[in-house]
Design a protein around this nucleic acid. Sequence first.
RNA 1: UGGGGUAUAGCCAAGUUGGUAAGGCAGCGGGUUUUGAUCCCGCCAUUCGUAGGUUCGAGUCCUGCUACCCCAGCCA
Length: 563
Amino acid sequence: MAETAPRPTNFIRQIIDKDLAAGLHDKIATRFPPEPNGYLHIGHAKSICLNFDIAQDYQGMCNLRFDDTNPEKENIDFVNSIKADVQWLGYQWQGKERYSSDYFDALYGFAVELIEKGLAYVDFSTQDEVREMRGTLTAPGKNSPYRDTSIEENLAHFEKMKNGEYKEGQCSLRAKIDMTSAFMCMRDPILYRVKFAHHHQTGDKWCIYPMYDFTHCLSDAIEGITHSLCSLEFQDNRRLYDWVVENVSVDTIPHQYEFSRLNLEYTVLSKRKLIQLVEESHVSGWDDPRMPTVAGIRRRGYTASSVREFCQRIGVTKMENMVEMSMLEACIRDELNVSAPRRMAVLAPVKLIIENMDDGHVEWLDAPNHPNNPDMGTRKVPFAKEIFIEQEDFREAANKKFKRLVLEKEVRLRNAYVVKANRVEKDEAGNITTIFCTYDADTLGKDPADGRKVKGVIHWVSAVHAKDAEIRLYDRLFNVPNPAGEEDFTGSINPTSLTLMHGKVEHALSEEVTISSDTDALQSYQFERQGYFCVDKDSTTDKLVFNRTVELRDTWAKVEQAG
RNA sequence: UGGGGUAUAGCCAAGUUGGUAAGGCAGCGGGUUUUGAUCCCGCCAUUCGUAGGUUCGAGUCCUGCUACCCCAGCCA
């Protein structure tokens, strides 16, 4: 669509431009490096778009690398869901996906090299001792008594570690850097720990696993990554990143740059909290349409291109941010406004009987699929004596601001005729059960001949032709902008984040909607005056299920609320 | 004075060598409209965390101050 869309500009691309101008690289290489210990969310999407778009725009490459150095928290289901999500977003990594565990042999060799250079040692201090000797933010640490063990002994100990001769927690391999450094991560960081854990990729081959700080930079170097992009909390770690790649024999020296994570209002984007939402059943699962996960957003009806557009709009900086939900919503509205066929659906029906129409009469009207795009064609809409309209579209009495159906007043039925409300029938409780109207047969596709102006237009469906549908309306999952800032974030969960409606959808939908569990083939519609909806995988031939992706902009709601 | 970072509108964010504050979202006003939608038009920072300084000229350079975020896992 927007062929002339300008390339985004951000500080990382500026660094790349400078590096390229300086002749530092002939090809840019990035990577997206998730740990397979959870599902991807919209915050990961920001990183995915950043890394893959840069690779694409600079004709470089982007790897998908699973940072799988902690087998106890990881599993193959997560790697599969992550691969599927990245692809759904529209990206393809270079070659086969990579794993940090692919490099365990090489990493072991680099560790040995460090020991041989006198830059690493096996420490038999307990975890508590290590913590105590590390010092604090304001007090320097103390050297471990194992710091000056000879190279030969260290080599032997490390070998034994690898061979499973030491218990978990009994010892660890540490870099020999500086226990007085102001960077806590430089106070002899642990490089390897003993873990008798089964690994989803390497099985039981290893009982020692390398730590993130040792693994990530070297994996980058091995893969020839030029620009290693990560989030702000790793800024201090960059010193260790640089120390490792400089002290080990690698061919290329990658560099790390940090950008700020995405924060989105009225939701949470931390893996721990997301897990809690699922495990405590606050949501139906990882793909609950209220979840900020890629799977949830997808099921909600967001397209991959709208998520990419969002990532483009929010930009990339080092500033702490809290993006408003309206930013995300605007992206999907912009897209669906152009692409989604219009349909009519009544969410909370009330019967309307047209008194001056014959009982069995059915008129098949043509209705455009899109008001501004005739190329999208038309569909047939049955008009008959009994129809349903929205309960909130009728009032017995109302002021001029209310542009809908009012007793003894007229309103336009969308794509059909002008009707006038004559009387209503109520049940014992006083609820309106039926509205009786007369229609003006000379108003199809034109205004009344006598010059009467009918302001309002409401949607409707033919009672006998309409199909029952469950319509799920979603609201924000939390009722505070920053739930992560609460003492207990689950306390601010919005109790009405999901509203089930038993509605009626127009006839055409019952024929065109295909029942499928294939979440990639999403069918989205605009239910006129209501919003954008997509077919949910829970749909059956007996009952269609729709998710409301997002409402239409609603200036009337504001007027009404204001009084 | 532990260290590392960040401050431009309600939110996100351009602003590259100092030359007189892009754009998007939200909001507000108006027009078109058989969706209170879309679309169109207009408005929305004399000022860039703050106090000084340099300069003909500072969001951009210098100095001081303030606020917020991150770091003391054998997690990533």
